[in-house]
Structure formats: C-alpha cells, structure tokens
Simulated scan of single mutants.
Amino acid sequence: MDSPHGAAVTADGLGLKGPRGWAFRGVTFSAAPGSLIAVEGPSGSGRTCLLLALTGRMRPTDGEAATGGLRLPRRASDVRRIAALGPVPGVSELDPAFTVAEHLRERALLQRRFDGSLRALLRPRRERVAAARARIDAALKAAGLDLATLPKAERTSVRDLERLEALRLSVALALIGRPRLLAVDDTDLKLSDTERAQAWELLRSLAADGTTVLAVCSQAPEDAVTVRTGATGATDPTDITGEPASPAAPAHDEGTADAFAETGRA
C-alpha cells in the first residue's frame, strides 16, 4: 500500500498525574519517523495512558511531547487526525457480536462521514468506489488478514477470531485511514511464542513501510525503540483526569462506504 511518511515521536520528562497518583512520569525518548516504538512494562505501570497521551487522547500534566511535530497537549486534536488506534481495551475494542464484514463496513462509513474533501466529491462515483476498494484491500493485505482463511470468511464473528486474527483486523481497520502513527495496546497479551513473533513481524513490516508504530507490550523486541514504564499508579483511562480518550476522526476518502457495499465483502 502507499504508506504515508511516519510521524516522529518525542517526549521530555512527560508525566500524567490523576486522583490516584502518577500514571507515569519522567518519560523521555526520541523516535524518528517510521520507527517501531515499544512501550514496555508490567500491567498497571502506565503503559496505556502513555499511549493515549502520545496519540492526543489524554492530557499529560508534566513535561513536553510532540507527535509528527505537533506539540502536546496544545495540538492534541491535530495529533488525533494523524494517529490511529489499533486495539485499546475500553477505547477502540472490536465488538464481539459484529462480523468482520460489519466492522469493515462501519469503518468505511466513518471514512465517508468525516470526508470533507471537495476534490474527492468531484471525482466520478465509479472512480471513488474503485479507489476506496483498493484502500480497504491494501489495508487487509498490510495487516496480513486473509478473509478466505477465516472460519466463515468475512461473515466470521469477532468472538470466533483467534487473538492474532483479531489483532490483524484491528490493525487493518486503523490502516484504512492511512495514519502516520499506529498505536496498539497489549500487543503480546495472550499470544503463544509463535504468535508473538508473528505479531511483532507484522508491526515491524508496517514500520519498514513508513508508518510509525507505537506498541504497548510486556517484553519489547531488541530492534525497537524501547520506552520503559514503572508501576507508579493507575493506568485505567477512566481513572485519570485529563482529556478523555476517544477514537480518532479518520483521515478520509469519499466512496469508501460505497466500495465496501458494492463489491460485497472485503
């Protein structure tokens, strides 16, 4: 797929304090565009809050940070436009009752809903549909999700997906918006050693193609830019005072919904 140029991510003494104390503090690192960034630490160490802060979805209370050259928290809304969330519990989870096709259709509709491009509106409908269809297919390919291998193909319910398959679907949905930064929580949770290696290979390939990847994990791979957190306080986004976590408005293309509806299933 045509990958956008990744977003550089920097932090200097970054911290976030809530009613129960510090979620994280003193985080300092610098990662170039197209980096694989691993936020490593035990559960309860502020990993998820750091991910949400760097993607413009929580407001840090100490230090400085920037994503794609956009300073946080002042430019948080702009950061949300270039940073997409993969799976983040309580924020961007897949609906277990939905099928794979329904999730793709919903994301396609969101793409169309937030598209304000006059140029896109002026393109012939058939051209818009074809371009959007290609974008969905490219996202699925980049995520390594072959719908034909699923138990019921595109009609497979999320609850019937294996953990790695669900991860790939979440990543594909995020990639439809062609983000400069992709953020993934609990990357290695409940994965076997083989599946964990496959998950990191997926994220590594996305970074190699130009998209900066920010991944929360319990153990970082050696080739990642590793940011370590300590067990300093609450990490549940609902426990922290700051900008509420919310999904990003997609970076959009008119015709995406039509593409999914007209060609059957992705």
Rank of each mutant, 00 (worst) to 15 (best):
A83W: 07
D62R: 15
G63M: 08
S35P: 02
T67F: 02
R57T: 09
A65D: 05
I37R: 00
Q111L: 12
P96W: 12
Q111Y: 02
V129I: 14
R113I: 09
L122T: 08
L109K: 08
I37Y: 00
L52S: 05
L54S: 06
D62I: 04
E40C: 02
R123P: 04
L70S: 11
R59A: 13
G63N: 08
A66D: 09
P60G: 06
F114Q: 04
F98R: 14
R125D: 02
L36G: 05
R57N: 06
E93S: 15
I82P: 08
G26C: 10
E64V: 05
Q111A: 11
G68N: 01
D78N: 09
A130T: 14
L50V: 04
R75E: 15
R125K: 07
L104C: 10
S43A: 12
P87S: 10
A53S: 15
L121Q: 10
C49Q: 12
L122Y: 03
A76Q: 06
C49D: 02
A76C: 11
R105I: 13
L110I: 03
R113S: 06
R81E: 15
A97I: 13
S92G: 04
L94E: 12
L110G: 01
L104I: 15
G46R: 08
E102Y: 13
T67E: 04
A66F: 00
G44I: 09
S117V: 07
S43R: 09
T55K: 03
H103M: 14
P89W: 00
L52M: 03
G116L: 12
L85W: 05
A108D: 05
L104H: 13
R112P: 00
R80I: 13
R57W: 00
L36N: 05
R107V: 15
G90M: 07
L70M: 11
D78A: 15
H103L: 13
P73I: 01
L50R: 06
G46T: 06
E106A: 15
A65V: 05
L118C: 01
R112I: 01
A32V: 07
L51Y: 01
F114V: 04
A76R: 11
G86S: 10
G116K: 09
G69S: 08
S77D: 15
A120I: 08
R80H: 07
D78V: 11
P60E: 12
A108W: 07
F114A: 08
F29Q: 10
P33R: 02
G68T: 01
L94D: 10
R75N: 14
L110T: 03
R59F: 03
V39N: 01
M58N: 05
R113Q: 12
V100C: 13
P42D: 06
S92T: 13
E102H: 14
L70V: 09
D62E: 15
L104S: 10
L52C: 06
V27K: 04
G41Q: 05
V91I: 12
R125H: 04
A83G: 07
S92P: 01
F114W: 13
R125I: 03
L85D: 07
R123M: 11
G26V: 11
